[in-house]
Amino acid sequence: MANSQRYTREIPHRYRLEAQKFKSGFVSLSRRYVDPETGEQEYEKIILKGTGTILTYTVIYVSADAFSKQTPFVIAIIETDEGARLTAQVVDCEPEEVRIGARVELVFRKIINEGHSGIINYGYKAVLI
């Protein structure tokens, strides 16, 4: 679970897929200060289009308590068309439909409610296209 302070600063990448493109072509969705391979510090801000491919996935049957009402759910590692890698749930499908190599699109969804009185966590998930 996030608290509202930590949650708020992650909004640009989580809500609208703000990413960084470094000179080498490396694209990172996670906020970075240097290109981990080249050490280059200059980058441009880009917004990912939200389409990509599943590199691998799993179906989670036993989760942390905060996610237990969603099980079983699919989690995948996705490479976006810009080359950024990310981990996200794949929703609106039966787990059997998911494949390595499947094409997906990122959508805006609720991740969890923080109990009955905490903040609602939103972010990206993927749907098959």
Partner: peptide, 9 residues
């Protein structure tokens, strides 16, 4: 922020 947040174990 980039893995556990999404429910991965």
């Amino acid at each position: 922020e980039y893995e556990a947040y999404h429910g991965v174990t």
